[in-house]
Each structure stands twice: as C-alpha cells, then as structure tokens.
C-alpha cells in the first residue's frame, strides 16, 4: 500500500520536497508556536513581576554552558551522521548517530544534576514564577530531548533495516530527525540566555 503513496523518497516536482520533509516542517511550525506561546507567557509574567531574580545568581551558569556545548556538538554529529549516510558510509553513520545519542544522554544527566541541586536548595517550581518558568521550560525541553533520543535510537537499531530496501527513504528519515534535533538545539540556545543570563 505504501508503495502507492508518491513522493515518499523522491521530492515532489513542484513543492520540491518529500512528504516526510514537508511533514517535519509542519511539525516544527507547530512546535514553534508551542514554545512561542510559552515564551510570550514568560515575557508577560516577567514584565509584570515586581521582582525577578537574575538567572546567573540562582542558576548554575557553568553547567548550563557545558550543556550548551554538548547540545551544539550533538547537532554537529547529527549532521555528520546524515552526511555519512548520504555518502553511503554506514560505519561512520552509525558512529555519529551513536555519538548524538550519547551526547543527548549526557545533556539529560547534567540537567538531572542541576535539578537535584535546585531541589537541595529548596528551589521548587512553586518557589516563585522564575523557578516555575525555569522548570516548565527546561522540563518541556528535556522531554523533547528524550523524544529525540528515542527516535534516534530507533533509527540506529531497528529502524535502520529500511536502509537495505529503501535507502533514499531512510536518508529522508535521518534528515527529518536531524531537522527536529536542530530545532530542539535551537530552543535551548534561546532558553540558555533567557533563563540563565538575562
């Protein structure tokens, strides 16, 4: 049946994209509205707050900087894995995708330590709206990271069987996963200065 659906692996002559690529762009547009909604809530709450802690005073900036570097590197390895696959170098593809997964797990572990130290200092979501926003935004972002890890792990192990039959479609999937991953990275690049530095 799926063989009947067109433009799964080849781009549509007019739109110039495959189904998966258009789909992931739609999904990202929706995600943009989700984080856009949360960011505007942040702006409204901060704008009307009588006091708002300076992020760097209460949050761990070095740890977050490390996490930023980790996430940016994971975006780089994600691109490398796609590029290796496009060059049909399966071994390199597997290596770079595994690196992406390991880096994202490292991000989550560091995030976990950060949360833990916040709880130890009795900083909870209910403490004030700054911490409420901090936990909500970073928590939702962490869920997105986790989602990315699951998708990437699927593509690394059981999902990679598709490469044997439909290499182009599989390459398209890696590209879509990569676009998602860059978006999650980009969200963090917004979150980092907004929460930790401003």
């Amino acid at each position: 049946m799926s063989a009947l659906i067109r433009y799964i692996s080849k781009p549509h002559p007019v739109s110039g994209v495959t189904n998966a690529k258009l789909g992931i762009w739609c999904f990202l547009a929706s995600e943009l509205m989700l984080f856009g909604g949360l960011f505007s809530a942040y702006i409204v709450l901060r704008g009307s707050a009588s006091e708002w802690p300076h992020g760097s005073a209460v949050l761990n900036v070095p740890l977050a900087t490390l996490n930023t570097l980790i996430l940016i590197s994971s975006s780089v390895t994600m691109v490398m894995s796609w590029a290796s696959l496009a060059l049909k170098n399966l071994k390199k593809f597997r290596f770079h995708l595994s690196m992406t997964i390991l880096l994202s797990l490292a991000f989550l572990v560091i995030k976990g330590f950060e949360y833990h130290s916040k709880f130890e200092h009795h900083h909870f979501p209910s403490t004030d709206n700054f911490f409420g926003m901090y936990f909500t935004l970073t928590g939702l972002h962490a869920i997105h990271i986790l989602g990315g890890v699951i998708v990437n792990a699927y593509l690394l192990f059981p999902g990679s069987k598709l490469y044997e039959t439909e290499p182009e479609q599989f390459l398209g999937r890696i590209e879509a996963a990569g676009l998602y991953w860059h978006f999650v990275d980009l969200v963090w690049i917004f979150l980092f200065p907004v929460l930790y530095l401003l």
């Binding site: 739609c26 929706s30 943009l32 989700l34 984080f35 909604g37 949360l38 809530a41 939702l140």
Partner: peptide, 13 residues
C-alpha cells in the same frame, strides 16, 4: 496546526 500549540502551552502552565 498553528493555533492549538498556544493552548497546549497554556494547558501545560
């Protein structure tokens, strides 16, 4: 696609 996510944001909050 574009109008529901802000409600999702609101529901999360």
């Amino acid at each position: 696609l574009l109008a529901f996510p802000p409600l999702q944001a609101a529901a999360v909050l």
